[in-house]
């Protein structure tokens, strides 16, 4: 474990009765990166994150978060973390500004509450009671409460569920500015575009273990480099998957040219295609080997 590692997990196991929620999971998150954990419901994402946050105890394995075992985390350790949980509908009768100011009193060096409310775009709602906020505003308040203590490491569990596209975009900007400030972010999400937009690295979790770990662009390794080429030849639609699309198109030009190849499409699998194949739910024929 290098000194730049913010989160280190080795051979993590956790079971609930007969169900192995986490089954030998390994990952490490470097300081200063946005690390995304992707996976279907029930894959063990939330269990893992809650073990890292100190909410749950592991059955076995090694876990270090900012150099501390979460099961032995003290106030000092907690003051270096920010936690945004999946869903909460608490504190309905307090206002945005009251809550942010209140949570600031827990930390040694809190952010300026007013600046923070502005940063999450809630200045106009500062005097509004929480129960009157929309889902997206509520979520931004959750994040404000999570980062009010200037955390070194921020946990976000499915932060943009229920956001409209514009709210998501400004939320992503907020996360990027946090990273630029040096905050390490561990993000679990259902949304692949979110991981693609934000994450420096992604781990895909399935059945309690990491099945792939890479940058979003490189995720899935070889599969992502398999490109589908479609064209029309002799009036029939043809398609093939290749790792060398340029060579294929050159060959097609020679065969069908000169001029345009009818119906030519060169399709790279999206992160979604790669993801679905990794979690065992291939959506279409993209990643199946089509004989040339």
């Amino acid at each position: 474990m290098s000194p730049t590692t913010a989160v280190h997990v080795r051979d993590l196991h956790k079971r609930y009765g007969p169900k192995r929620a986490v089954d030998g999971l390994e990952l490490s998150v470097e300081h200063g990166e946005i690390f995304s954990v992707l996976g279907p419901n029930g894959a063990g994402k939330t269990t893992t994150v809650e073990i890292l946050e100190g909410y749950r105890h592991r059955d076995r394995g090694e876990v270090s978060v900012l150099g501390t075992d979460p099961q032995r985390g003290d106030r000092r350790w907690r003051s270096r973390l920010g936690i945004v949980l999946q869903s909460a509908d608490d504190q309905a009768e307090l206002t945005v500004a009251e809550l942010v100011r209140h949570f600031a009193t827990f930390y040694p060096e809190p952010r300026d509450p007013e600046e923070l409310v502005a940063a999450v775009g809630l200045t106009e709602k500062a005097g509004t009671r929480v129960r009157q906020l929309s889902g997206g505003q509520r979520r931004r308040l959750d994040v404000a409460l999570g980062i009010v203590g200037r955390p070194e490491l921020l946990f976000l569990d499915e932060p943009t569920t229920g956001f409209d596209p514009e709210a998501r975009r400004s939320f992503w900007d907020l996360l990027r500015s946090l990273r630029d400030e040096g905050t390490t972010i561990l993000l679990t999400t259902h949304y692949l575009d979110e991981a693609e937009q934000l994450a420096d690295r992604c781990a895909v979790v399935r059945d309690g273990r990491v099945v792939a770990l890479d940058t979003p662009a490189a995720l899935g390794g070889r599969a992502a480099r398999q490109v589908m080429v479609r064209w029309v030849e002799d009036g029939a639609a043809r398609s093939t998957t290749t790792a060398e699309p340029t060579a294929l198109v050159t060959a097609l030009t020679a065969r069908l040219g000169p001029g345009e190849i009818p119906g030519l499409e060169v399709l790279r699998p999206t992160l979604e295609d790669v993801y679905l194949s990794l979690i065992g739910k291939a959506s279409d024929h993209h990643l199946e080997e089509v004989p040339a």
Partner: peptide, 17 residues
């Protein structure tokens, strides 16, 4: 971090000091 993917750069509403 390895590489920052490019994204929308308008941060007018999301600047933190």
């Amino acid at each position: 971090p390895p590489e920052h993917t490019a994204g929308p750069t308008d941060r007018s509403t999301a600047e933190l000091t």
